[in-house]
């Protein structure tokens, strides 16, 4: 069953950070949600983590300012529906449907803000972002790379280096060098990149 836009929209408030419902997630509702995801609780937990991660990505892709908050709001709404007895046959599709409703609310809120501050567009605000000093992060990255194997270091530094044509050529060579198909290599590089980003984030907290 797909989520109803009207039913869910009326639960939100006009919070500028995220459309929030007054309803609060309870342990019982969360357990019901997990039961909808899988009969096995461990597998259900893994699916929950994966769905939440995908929701955050979805809100990022759509250019939302607080992807994690929007993802949690979406999950709360789904959990509420589940606890109220709604049958959820396709959890991933259902969650994404609810997420789109939350997204609409985010867009509406943003429109209101823009109208209120008509002279300051969102684009301008985004462009005004000042990048952080790159050195500490680069040092942390070097530190994190030291914890990787030589092959992984070579992979990450070569895979993401170069201009378009050179990058393609680099990746072909890496594919031959590691005797790995391009698609597999791409997934390996991506996972490594994500791990390194987490490692760098942790490292920056210690500085």
């Amino acid at each position: 069953m797909e989520a109803s836009s009207d039913a869910l929209a009326e639960e939100s408030t006009s919070n500028t950070r995220s459309p929030r419902s007054r309803w609060v997630l309870t342990q019982g509702a969360f357990d019901t949600l997990l039961a909808c995801l899988d009969d096995n609780r461990d597998d259900a937990g893994r699916k929950y983590v994966e769905i939440r991660k995908n929701l955050i990505r979805f809100f990022e892709w759509r250019g939302c300012p607080f992807p994690e908050d929007h993802a949690d709001e979406t999950i709360n709404r789904v959990a509420r529906r589940a606890s109220e007895g709604e049958e959820i046959r396709n959890p991933a599709g259902y969650v994404l449907g609810v997420g789109r409703l939350v997204l609409l609310e985010v867009y509406k809120e943003r429109e209101k803000e823009h109208r209120a501050l008509s002279e300051l567009s969102h684009t301008t605000a985004a462009r005004s972002y000042d990048f952080e000093e790159v050195e500490p992060r680069a040092e942390c990255l070097k530190h994190c790379l030291e914890g990787q194997t030589a092959d992984n270091r070579e992979l990450i530094l070569q895979y993401y280096h170069g201009e378009a044509a050179a990058k393609i050529e680099n990746r072909k060579k890496l594919s031959e060098r590691f005797k790995t198909p391009i698609n597999t290599l791409r997934m390996r590089a991506l996972r490594l990149r994500e791990r390194l980003q987490v490692c760098v984030g942790d490292c920056l907290k210690t500085l």
Partner: peptide, 23 residues
């Protein structure tokens, strides 16, 4: 910039990419 610099999570990805490019 409209899409990717809108959230802190994504800005972290961009910051990481800058560090990766430098290294």
């Amino acid at each position: 910039e409209t899409r990717f610099l809108a959230s802190a999570e994504r800005r972290q990805k961009v910051e990481f990419a800058r560090a990766l490019a430098q290294v």
